[in-house]
Design a protein around this nucleic acid. Structure first.
Lengths: 356, 356
DNA sequence: ACAGTGTAAGCGAACGTTCGCATAAGACTT
DNA sequence: AAGTCTTATGCGAACGTTCGCTTACACTGT
């Protein structure tokens, strides 16, 4: 807080010009080993650390990357936030970068926020997530040609480097899993139309059903905003269908709707997993501990954060993005009792095998 | 990315010296209204934004606050992270500050990380959380007299501004709630000794029991590292006690152990909430959706983040902390079926009253 | 002995601000 | 009308780096 050792002080102590010290520190020049050693010794002896700000001013870079994300509603934890952030911090730090986090605001204010961070030179680039079709922030960054990478793609005219989870594939995996268990009447709890992620996921449901030559009945597709309540209500409706069309399995587009679905199943005296199969999406940490444990789809969050960050920093340092420019990764289907009815989790816990 | 408008450019266009422009922008001086208007006009016309880096270099402040936190294990979401971060971003941004987030590393490396951020002048202050008795980072900051505030207190010799949740009070509230329901044989699932937070919480159990003149039997106190498995095993042990000492209620120090406890109760054919009452701590978002919904203690996270940030920034700007220097806030007991046995949640859901 | 070559280190300038002091001009005192 | 006080603006310097150019010097080859 008090003192700050500067290049000049080090230089005068070491008996050289301060510019020479700078060059030694940055390995910019060949220098007599004797002087070099003397300089390094004084540096450590005096505890010199270059001023981040002064360096930034000179090189015109902040070595800082901006990130913001949409906060979860209070009743709903963000299952991947912690890991995603940590993976980005870690990979960024290894290359000398840090993340500047800023609040998530209403659209117009948010745009100003981005502008401000760009114009003040506070960040060199952004990471952007939870995109939707017409994301004004992405448009701004593209228009300004400001560097960024995205978690999530957008199939409009804008092109930018991104990594996305193949939600369609994930749901297809879930449906195929249910088909392999013998289910034929499979319903889905989907998001409203026109959400980028939602459309992608439900596409997997339709394509898997089509591949199995099962006609999807319109009443099997329930839509809503992804909450517990929607899952509960929609499933209650589904279960009231006549015997011939009543689904025996439910594929939810997120865990919370799946949890609601299980509650609805229990409400009418049936047993989730045994009587009606349920799957979710996200593999919320508590999914394992639900009753019954929930079959869900897990995203390779750590890898995504790491790859995004590596690509972004490579771009900042070299001026071009490494391949692949766009990457689509598969989620992993985590099978638990809610779809199979077999309580293997508990068995394994008792045998002490599940959590070595 | 390409151009940057500087003070000098604005000045020459406005026909004044660049220093004058600076003064006008910073409201540092009284100036003829005519010139002032001309300057402001050119500023907006040219889209000038002061360079954050240059300003920082000059004023020797970064207006940046550092924060890191211990990542949750993969099977356990951090229930308050999102909200805590957002509350800090928001209050910081309102006063022109941003948060720099950095990775959580092993102790020695972490100390270097803190040192580095201080010595390079990258941050003006820190927010520190999840303290334990001998936190080397806190010791470093105290020794260097570097500004910081903490989420959590430490009752050693170090004094620093902090806000903490009164975990002891929370547990006392939970125990008193159970007592009021008629329970007398109340067990607890506690953390290992010598964790700052754990010791504080269990103290509430002992004091509430003592106040009710109930002798705590040693076998009622189970300890472990706060996981689902510990909750499951410890509760299985508790339920195997002879009728006379077998607890009718279980107070867990976090939600995950409570979830394990409920599983153990179900394992022996009993019903959590009806036969054995269970309470947790943290009010994980999914707590509401468990079967039965879990009674838990909620921390006023948003207020904590906001107050911490406000106090820290006030210190940075004025040089002294506003009162109170230390603040202890009460958690809120959220009563649900796992302790009462009455399924009011479902009733209310059906009546549409719970989630207006 | 002298030009040519290579290397070690220094020098001045610049990055874009803010800050304190100097100065000019006008207004006010005496 | 000369001196003092305000007020509005300008000026130089500094914050702590990095970068490109120049200088100094020793070493080679003829």
């Amino acid at each position: 807080m008090l003192k700050r050792v500067t290049l000049k002080q080090v230089a005068s102590r070491a008996g050289v010009s301060y510019q020479t010290v700078s060059k030694v520190i940055n390995h910019k020049v060949h220098i007599s080993t004797e002087v070099e050693k003397r300089i390094w010794d004084t540096v450590t002896e005096m505890g010199y650390t270059p001023s981040y700000t002064a360096r930034s001013l000179r090189i015109q870079r902040s070595r800082t990357i901006g990130y913001t994300w949409e906060p979860s509603p209070a009743d709903q934890a963000n299952p991947i936030l912690d890991q995603f952030l940590q993976s980005m911090f870690n990979t960024a730090e290894k290359r000398g970068y840090y993340l500047l986090c800023f609040p998530y605001l209403e659209p117009e204010k948010q745009l100003d926020m981005y502008r401000h961070l760009i114009d003040t030179g506070r960040v060199d680039a952004f990471v952007v997530s939870s995109l939707n079709y017409t994301d004004p922030n992405v448009a701004l960054l593209c228009e300004r040609e400001f560097p960024f990478v995205a978690f999530g793609r957008l199939d409009g005219s804008l092109i930018f480097p991104n990594i996305d989870v193949d939600g369609g594939l994930g749901i297809r995996m879930a449906v195929e899993h249910l088909l392999s268990l013998g289910h034929r009447k499979i319903a889905t709890l989907a998001w409203p139309n026109n959400s980028r992620v939602g459309d992608n996921r439900i596409e997997g449901y339709f394509s898997a059903m089509q591949a199995a030559r099962i006609e999807v009945r319109p009443e099997w597709v329930e839509r809503g905003e992804g909450s517990y309540e929607v899952g509960l209500r929609a499933t209650t409706t589904l279960l009231a269908l006549p015997e011939t069309t009543r689904p025996t399995a439910i594929v939810a587009m997120n865990d919370l709707m799946a949890i609601g679905a299980m509650a609805a199943i229990r409400n009418i005296g049936l047993s989730p997993g045994k009587d009606i199969a349920v799957t979710g999406f996200d593999d919320t940490p508590t999914a394992r501990f639900l009753n019954p444990p929930l079959t869900s789809l897990r995203q390779p969050v750590w890898e995504i954060g790491q790859h995004l960050m590596e690509r972004l920093i490579t771009y900042l340092e070299t001026g071009h993005y490494p391949d692949p420019f766009e990457e689509l990764v598969a989620p992993e289907l985590v099978v638990r009792t809610s779809s199979t009815g077999i309580e293997m989790d508990r068995v394994l816990i008792e045998k002490g095998e599940l959590y070595r």
